[in-house]
Each structure stands twice: as structure tokens, then as C-alpha cells.
């Protein structure tokens, strides 16, 4: 990891934190984007609260995606579950190709407005990367290693937990990371059905023709996505540095 990149990441983090804690201090920067004396900084709610709410929503949804997708990935890579691979893949693919907006439209009549439809949409949208990476990771375990594990007398569960999952873990985490990042951006649409998040800021900007609001909502969301991605990547590097450098 280069020094310059680290500095850049820390600078981005500092910028994000400062903006969320003291948005008013950025008012002069955003003022040129407003017309007719409209407020340059979002004033209908606390930006920090909205940002944290969005992160929380995404983390919940991605955690649920991870549990289901990893579980499904494990199931279809067992001999007994291999026949479910095509079906599972189709379902997960639908989750990804079906637009989250459409999922919201379907979910709202069923579960009402608010957080729930957003969680459902994000959950569906986040399955594919985790599922596919879990399968690649588990299929990618060297056959000799699997054979040795069985030959040593590990039970199927011991083999899965002690050998296969640890070896697949870098890919699985990469899938979770991708899913998380995609969903940080996607979560903004949850505001259209009343979930708390930075989408509120963007929508308010669109409604009042206030470019400053739109930019704030967008920039904060984007920065959060990038920083989350980098943070997870750093954790992964630390966890798997010794064993997997070939």
C-alpha cells in the first residue's frame, strides 16, 4: 500500500467527518450552487444522523444477505445440495437484475412504508456478489487439500469449518465488501418510501431545485461507500496477510 494512497484515504475520512459534524462551516463552499437565497446546507434534519441511519440500514441488509448467500453457497457446494445450484443461481440473479426501485414498489403494499421495504430491496440486491464469491471460494480449494482433510479423519463439518471456509474466506469477504459498497449507494432510494437516509437530502434538493442539497447527499454517500470499501479491504489484508501471499 503506497503512502500517498494512505494519506488520500485519511484526508477523505477527515473531510467526511468534519462535514458531518460541522456542516455549517462548509456553507460558503455550497452557497454559489443555490439560487434566490435558498439554504446552502441541508437544514431539515441532521446530516450525521441521516448518514448513520443509512449505514445502519445497509449493514443490516448486507448482514442478512451474507448469512443467506454464504449459507446457500455452502449448501450448493455440498454433494447433497449440488442439484440446487441452478435454482439458487437463478433466484440470486433475479435479486440482482430486478431493479431495487421495482422491489420497493412491490414491497410497500406488502409491508408498508419505512425501513422494511428498503431492507428487503437491499437484501435482494446484495445477494449475488456474496453468493458467487462463496461458490468460487469453496470450489477454488485445492482438491489435494480437501482430500487430505478427509483422509486425516475430519468430519464433513470439521472440514468445512476448519479448511474450506477459511480458505474461501478472502473471496467471501470480498463479495461482502462489494455488496456493502453497492448497497451504500443504492440505499439512498429508500428515502422514497420513508426510510431515513441521505436520499432525503437528494430528494429535498430535487424538489426545491437546490443543487447544493443534491450534491451534499451524493458526495456524502459516495465518500461513505469509498471509505467503507477501503476500511474492509484493510481489515482483510491484515487478516490474511500471512497465509495467502503466494
Amino acid at each position: 500500500m503506497s503512502r500517498a494512497a494512505t494519506v488520500l484515504r485519511l484526508a477523505a475520512l477527515a473531510l467526511l467527518v468534519t462535514f458531518l459534524l460541522t456542516p455549517a462551516s462548509f456553507a460558503p463552499l455550497f452557497a454559489p450552487l443555490t439560487q434566490y437565497g435558498a439554504p446552502p446546507i441541508y437544514d431539515q434534519g441532521n446530516l450525521l444522523t441521516l448518514a448513520l441511519a443509512q449505514i445502519a440500514t445497509v449493514c443490516c441488509a448486507t448482514a442478512a444477505s451474507a448469512v443467506v448467500a454464504v449459507g446457500l453457497g455452502i449448501l450448493v457446494t455440498r454433494a447433497s445440495g449440488a442439484q440446487f445450484l441452478p435454482l439458487s443461481r437463478t433466484l440470486v440473479n433475479i435479486g440482482q437484475t430486478f431493479p431495487p426501485v421495482a422491489v420497493l414498489a412491490i414491497a410497500v403494499p406488502l409491508v408498508g412504508f419505512g425501513l422494511k421495504p428498503t431492507l428487503i430491496a437491499l437484501f435482494c440486491y446484495g445477494l449475488l456478489p456474496i453468493f458467487e464469491n462463496t461458490i468460487s471460494g469453496l470450489h477454488g480449494c485445492p482438491p489435494a487439500v480437501i482430500e487430505a482433510a478427509s483422509g486425516m479423519g475430519m468430519s464433513p463439518t470439521q472440514r468445512l469449518l476448519g479448511v474450506e471456509l477459511p480458505l474461501a474466506m478472502p473471496l467471501i469477504l470480498e463479495g461482502i465488501r462489494l455488496s456493502l459498497v453497492i448497497n451504500v449507494g443504492t440505499a439512498a432510494i429508500g428515502s422514497t418510501v420513508g426510510a431515513k437516509g441521505l436520499g432525503e437530502v437528494i430528494i429535498a434538493g430535487l424538489l426545491s431545485n437546490n443543487t447544493a442539497f443534491i450534491l451534499q447527499g451524493g458526495l456524502v454517500t459516495g465518500l461513505m461507500a469509498i471509505l467503507l470499501y477501503e476500511a474492509m479491504a484493510a481489515v482483510e489484508r491484515r487478516l490474511f496477510r500471512p497465509a495467502l501471499i503466494e
Binding site: 487430505a148 483422509g151 486425516m152 479423519g153 480458505l167 495467502l244
Partner: peptide, 14 residues
């Protein structure tokens, strides 16, 4: 109870 060694050794890389 039975030792088992194979070609390519199958050591656990992690």
C-alpha cells in the same frame, strides 16, 4: 487411526 500422505502433500495453506 490410519496415516494418509498423498502426492502434492495437500498441506493446509492457512
Amino acid at each position: 487411526r490410519i496415516g494418509y500422505a498423498i502426492q502434492g502433500n495437500g498441506l493446509f495453506p492457512h
